[in-house]
Write a protein that binds this DNA or RNA. Sequence first.
DNA 1: ACCTGAACACCGTTCAAGT
DNA 2: ACCTGAACACCGTTCAAGT
Lengths: 194, 194
Amino acid sequence: MAHRSEDVMRRTPARADALRNREKLLDVARTLYAQKGAEVTLNGLAKQAGFGVGTVYRHFPTREVLLEAVIADRFDALQALAEELLAGPDPGGPGLRRWLDVLLDNLTEYRGLPASTLAAMHDETSHLYQSCHGMRAAAARLLRAAQDDGTIREDLDVSTLLKLSNAVALVTEQTGRAAKELLPFLYEGITPRS
Amino acid sequence: MAHRSEDVMRRTPARADALRNREKLLDVARTLYAQKGAEVTLNGLAKQAGFGVGTVYRHFPTREVLLEAVIADRFDALQALAEELLAGPDPGGPGLRRWLDVLLDNLTEYRGLPASTLAAMHDETSHLYQSCHGMRAAAARLLRAAQDDGTIREDLDVSTLLKLSNAVALVTEQTGRAAKELLPFLYEGITPRS
DNA sequence: ACCTGAACACCGTTCAAGT
DNA sequence: ACCTGAACACCGTTCAAGT
């Protein structure tokens, strides 16, 4: 009965200063990501932010967790966009394509983001799983609308669609320049035959 | 006129013992790759093979170069297969699909292979560029045959085709399980409309 | 020509000691 | 409850010294 309360739920610091420190760390991390891609080091972050290393590790026990914290709100924004498009005038094929474009832009903004996204999709223990799940659900409804439209193949599910998008993003990441030339073939592949 | 001979052409050691050492290192490296993916360390390789670190660095100045040396012959094998298929009974669509299947198997064997492949394709300074280029040329002829067949879209070039394949391989790499479910959409995307 | 291994600057990670 | 920073094992990389 007596549940050991400390084991789970380690998300928000209890003390006000700790919460401020966490915000500050995220702020510096965002700047570092923008500067040097995903080559952000936990030691480097500590030095840059003027904290002890242990403090960084208390908030973000691993590099992955840090990246996840930084990009979680992006997923939330994508979810919001999907719902917005669903309520808009073109919830079908056009809406989905618009959403995929924005998704691609987001995925290619930070190096390492597609890898984290794919990991989050398949690992329920990931801290990113929640945001990712919400986004996926919204994307599923958008996909459903496009399929009712007849503009997207019936045998395509959200997971596969997201994997395909991340595939394009991964190539973009590796080749440097944007791999937008892959998109036509992606779109062609998910469109039904006459 | 007097060309400084040491600058380029650093491929094959001049002394017999050095060449044996190089072979030995490659052998151990292959074993390590098979065991623990691409998490092979140059220091670790030195220790495992019983050489000084400097020796490893003399032969393989970076982790990339080592991986490239290990996988160069795979590219050669893929080139050979392409030429074999071209000379075979079904050089068109079936030949290309067969080749793509083998390509995918190769790309997903070692973690980190798709990334190196994509890098090699776009970086002429890469040591892998030669092998990659030969493979690409053979693949181009195979693609050409399939296009003459009418089974593959005319507006698809080899670079894009290889990028698409690597995209699938990258997702497979990230998700752990094979992403073969992406293949139908890939094939659909590169097939011409009625 | 080639090999060795100590040396350096870095990384992730832990943990006793402080407030 | 939280923060600190020294400490440890590791990594990539270099280079004087040996054969």
